[in-house]
Computed example of a mutant assay.
Amino acid sequence: MKPILFALLGAVLLTSQPALAKDSDYTGGRISLSATGKVDAVPDLATLSAGVITEGKTAKAALASNRTRMIGVFRALKAAGIKDRDMQTSGLNVSPVYAPYTSNQPRNEPRITGYRTSNQVSAIVRDLEGLGAAIDALVDSGANTIGGISFGLENPEAGLDQARRNAMKNLMAKARLYANAGNFRIGDIISMSESSGYRPQPKVAYARSMAMDSAPSPIAAGEVTSSITINATFEIEQ
C-alpha cells in the first residue's frame, strides 16, 4: 500500500505545481502564473424589458389591439424620464393560435382560432430610485409582460481598471511567494495576457403586491462585480 500512496501523492504534487519550461537560450527557466482582481460597485442603471401580448380573431385585430396598448407603454416610459435613445424594440411577433388537437381531427389539418401579437421593448433606467414606480406605471399603462431587470454601470471601465490593479498586485504577491518557497528570484515578465468579466446581479422578476398598491414595488439593486484575470510568464533565476 505504501508505494501506491507515495505514487499518488507525487502525482498530486506534480499537477499542482505552476507551469515551468526551460528555454534553450535561457538557463534559469520560466514560471507561468495567473491571478484575479475583483471590484464590487453599486449599480447606477438598470435595464428592463416590458411589453404587451394581445390576441384577436384576425392578425390585423391582434396587431391593432397591441399597437394601442404599446403606445401607452412608450408614454409611460417617457413619463418616467427615459430618453428615446434608451428605448429599443427587442421583439415583435404575430403568430397564429391553434385549437387544441382532438382525436377526430386530421393531424395534417390544424385549426386556427385566432392570432397572437407580442411586442417587447427594452429600456435603460438611469434613475434607480424611481425604478419601482416606473415598473408600476408600465403595468398601469397596459404592459402585461415584464421580462426582468438587470443592473449595471454607466462606466464599467473604471471598475475594470481597478480590478486590473488588484489583479496585478495579487500576481506579483503570488510570484514573490513562489520565489521565496522555491528559493529562486523572479526576473522579467516574458508575456502577459488578461481576460475580463463583468457580472451584474441576477435578473429580478417583477412582482406587485395587491395589498400595497399605494406604494411603489420594492426593488433591490445589490452590487455588480468587475473582474480581471491576468496570465503572465516570468523568467526565474536560481
Score class of each variant (00 low, 15 high):
residue 175 A to G: 08
residue 166 N to S: 09
residue 160 L to C: 02
residue 166 N to F: 12
residue 163 A to V: 12
residue 151 F to I: 04
residue 181 A to Q: 14
residue 166 N to G: 00
residue 170 N to S: 13
residue 150 S to W: 04
residue 165 R to I: 15
residue 178 Y to G: 06
residue 161 D to Y: 12
residue 152 G to Y: 01
residue 165 R to D: 15
residue 155 N to M: 05
residue 178 Y to T: 06
residue 177 L to C: 00
residue 151 F to P: 03
residue 178 Y to H: 15
residue 173 A to R: 15
residue 153 L to H: 07
residue 174 K to Q: 14
residue 147 G to S: 11
residue 162 Q to P: 04
residue 153 L to K: 15
residue 162 Q to G: 04
residue 160 L to K: 04
residue 160 L to N: 00
residue 180 N to Q: 15
residue 183 N to R: 08
residue 154 E to S: 15
residue 166 N to D: 15
residue 179 A to G: 07
residue 149 I to N: 07
residue 169 K to V: 02
residue 149 I to S: 05
residue 174 K to W: 03
residue 157 E to A: 13
residue 173 A to P: 09
residue 160 L to H: 01
residue 168 M to E: 06
residue 180 N to P: 07
residue 168 M to A: 07
residue 152 G to M: 11
residue 158 A to G: 08
residue 183 N to A: 13
residue 161 D to I: 14
residue 151 F to E: 05
residue 179 A to P: 08
residue 149 I to H: 02
residue 160 L to E: 03
residue 147 G to Q: 02
residue 159 G to R: 10
residue 160 L to A: 02
residue 149 I to M: 14
residue 179 A to W: 06
residue 148 G to V: 00
residue 154 E to C: 07
residue 170 N to C: 06
residue 145 T to G: 06
residue 175 A to V: 05
residue 149 I to Q: 02
residue 159 G to N: 12
residue 164 R to P: 05
residue 156 P to Q: 04
residue 152 G to P: 06
residue 163 A to Y: 13
residue 157 E to P: 04
residue 183 N to L: 09
residue 180 N to G: 09
residue 169 K to R: 11
